[in-house]
């Protein structure tokens, strides 16, 4: 029961973000009221800088963000699961990962995304996803590697190694099945990180271009009129926060308790 309760926000916001565009009461790019109009009949959250319906735009503005973040989080987690486990089993690979992560720590994530997206003109969402994955991967690998290290040293992996198993089999059959909880929580954490990168990029106008509806872009566009209609800024801001938090909570709830213990040490 409590579990269901803690899963609820994630489900709710996911449904809103995915189905929102269909629920929007008015078109997202047509003015329906005066610019920055306060909430009134037909416009429950007021209007934005161009008099467009804020509710419609909020409903429409989450889908791309959600999907992009999800893609990034999944890519990072899957790649980290494979590479991190391999790194735990092969110290030489582990050292390379360490060095790459040491380099990446010198480059702030926002700078890296700026670099890739701006110089990859026409890259669009692919460029953004690439940058976000590249930025998050080294650390995710380190986390998986740290979690896999005790398993890599366990008796059954030793026995499998001595018994003649090769690396892919070790990764796939012996280690990864024991990391399910870790990976689930990692997925949650990477989702939060991906939301951060994707929204920040959108806020810096590196993502969806106007007149597309996007929560981060809405915050930027409507910031000048924040005093006239605060809802146009506050609601998308809250939506971003709730999205990040609820998914992370859901991942934590879904992970088995033993796994939580494991990740707790990370």
């Amino acid at each position: 029961m409590r579990t269901a309760l803690r899963l609820l926000p994630a489900g709710l916001i996911a449904v809103i973000a995915l189905a929102g565009p269909l629920l929007a009461p008015s078109p997202i790019d047509a003015p329906v009221a005066a610019p920055y109009a306060l909430p009134g009949p037909g416009v429950p959250l007021g209007a934005d800088e161009l008099g467009r319906n804020v509710l419609s735009r909020v409903l429409a503005g989450g889908r791309e963000l959600l999907l992009t973040s999800l893609v990034v989080a999944c890519l990072v987690t899957v790649a980290a699961a494979l590479l991190g486990t391999a790194a735990a089993l092969r110290p030489a690979l582990g050292r390379i990962v360490e060095r790459v992560a040491d380099v990446m720590i010198l480059l702030p994530a926002v700078l890296a995304v700026l670099l890739v997206v701006l110089s990859w003109q026409g890259g669009g969402r692919v460029a953004l996803v690439t940058a976000a994955v590249a930025v998050g991967l080294p650390y995710a690998i380190r986390v998986v590697c740290a979690a896999a290290a005790p398993i890599a040293g366990s008796g059954y992996v030793e026995a499998a190694v001595a018994g003649g198993e090769r690396l892919p089999q070790l990764v796939w059959r012996e280690v990864l099945p024991n990391l399910r909880a870790t990976l689930l929580i990692l997925l949650g954490l990477r989702f939060v990180a991906a939301v951060y990168v994707v929204t920040t990029a959108a806020f810096l106008e590196l993502g969806p271009q106007p007149p597309a509806a996007d929560w981060a872009l809405m915050v930027r566009e409507n910031a000048p009129g924040i005093l006239l209609n605060p809802w146009a800024v506050v609601v998308p801001s809250l939506a971003i926060g709730v999205l990040a938090l609820s998914v992370q909570t859901a991942a934590e709830v879904l992970a088995p308790r033993s796994g939580r213990q494991v990740v707790a040490r990370l």
Binding site: S154, G155, A162
Partner: peptide
């Protein structure tokens, strides 16, 4: 050669994969 020499590890270290 790997097949011909087999190791039986001690149990406290987790000699068996818990999910298999």
């Amino acid at each position: 050669q790997r097949r011909l020499i087999q190791l039986v590890p001690q149990d406290p270290l987790g000699a068996l994969n818990p999910v298999r």
